[in-house]
């Protein structure tokens, strides 16, 4: 496991130096300085970020699957090109994030292997199926919208490579979000059947999207230290509330009903939503969501089917290297 390797690599000197170094490190964080790959950092900071950035990368890659499910069936050539480009962007985000995670000392291969072994998590949302074209609009509108809420604060994250990656990722995500909303607008201005399709998609995605922000604040494991290290700047519930408040007027504009009849606006202007079914969330995280098995199976199949291609590329590179050495010797 990478976490153990990293812990042990810090060595025994930690006892001696940790307190002083940790204090200096915290002082840098408090002064809003960026931590860079070659800087000293506590093993737990490294571990937390490796976990978070690689989970984020896995989410981008697994997230290609539910939307990829509609590339071959997109209803117009314009939509088809836009969707293919969007899913390609997600792949790019994945690559970019794996590179950011690698600056913390764990290789992409190791991180991917953990995901394929079911030992690393990815966003729970991608374990839900895309059943109709309206799901593609809804994912752009809500899933990318929620991702942006989560990720904008990460642009100011204390770890430099992650923060910089997030700036670029957020720009593209915000484009995706607008694209998704535009699909929804088109559906809601379309035929009765199209509007029903849009409502059905919202009904199915609403609660899983709220769960994307993670467990409620009183139950969140990682929040305290992440906040202290300025990895996390807002709590799960704060971000969830911001998202709901931003989304309700959009749903009203579309003429769609949020599937929460108890929802009401309080005096402060915030929309109060009903209780979230955290049992469902736990089940999905535990591997029991509707698509967990399919998603992992698809990633494993791509990995296994591609093994001979990667082997060939390595073998060819090695042959070239040997030939170059031979030529140089002649």
């Amino acid at each position: 496991m990478y976490t153990q390797a990293l812990n042990s690599s810090d060595g025994d000197e930690r006892h001696v130096e940790d307190a002083e170094r940790a204090a200096q490190f915290q002082a840098r964080i408090d002064a809003d300085e960026r931590i860079e790959p070659n800087d000293w950092m506590p093993a737990a900071y490294r571990k937390t970020l490796t976990r978070q950035i690689s989970q984020h990368a896995h989410s981008e890659i697994v997230g290609m699957l539910p939307e990829g499910n509609w590339i071959t069936r997109a209803p117009s050539l314009r939509r088809k090109a836009a969707l293919l480009a969007k899913v390609q962007d997600e792949c790019g985000h994945g690559l970019y994030l794996y590179a950011a995670a690698e600056t913390l000392g764990t290789s992409r291969e190791e991180l991917v292997d953990l995901m394929l072994a079911g030992k690393a998590k990815y966003s729970s949302i991608f374990n839900y199926p895309t059943l109709t074209w309206a799901d593609i609009g809804t994912i752009g509108w809500l899933v990318d919208g929620a991702a942006i809420m989560n990720q904008i604060p990460l642009c100011r994250c204390s770890y430099g490579p992650y923060a910089r990656a997030m700036i670029r990722v957020c720009k593209e995500e915000s484009f995706h979000q607008r694209q998704g909303f535009e699909i929804m607008v088109t559906l809601c201005r379309g035929t009765e059947e199209q509007k029903a399709m849009a409502q059905d998609a919202l009904n199915r995605w609403w609660w899983p999207v709220l769960m994307m922000f993670g467990p409620p604040d009183q139950a969140s494991q990682h929040s305290d230290t992440s906040t202290k290290w300025k990895i996390k700047r807002f709590s799960n519930d704060e971000l969830r509330q911001k998202f709901v408040d931003a989304t309700v007027p959009q749903a009203q504009f579309l003429g769609l009903s949020i599937p929460d009849p108890g929802m009401k606006q309080n005096e402060a202007g915030n929309w109060e939503y009903s209780a979230i079914d955290w049992d469902e969330f736990k089940q999905v995280l535990a591997g029991n969501g509707p698509c967990n098995r399919d998603r992992l199976a698809a990633r494993r199949k791509a990995h296994d089917d591609g093994a001979w291609v990667r082997d060939a590329a390595l073998a060819y590179a090695e042959k070239r290297r040997q030939r170059a050495t031979l030529q140089a010797a002649e």
Binding site: G68, T72, L77, L84, V87, C91, G94, A298, A302, R310
Partner: peptide, 29 residues
């Protein structure tokens, strides 16, 4: 080519196959 999206032997090739697919879709349009 778009059928490969998400299933290529490596991420770099996912990007490349999608790129070529997008070029061709653009030409078709």
């Amino acid at each position: 080519l778009s059928e490969w999206c998400g299933h290529a032997p490596m991420l770099e090739e996912d990007m490349a196959l999608a790129n070529m697919g997008l070029d061709l879709l653009g030409q078709a349009r």
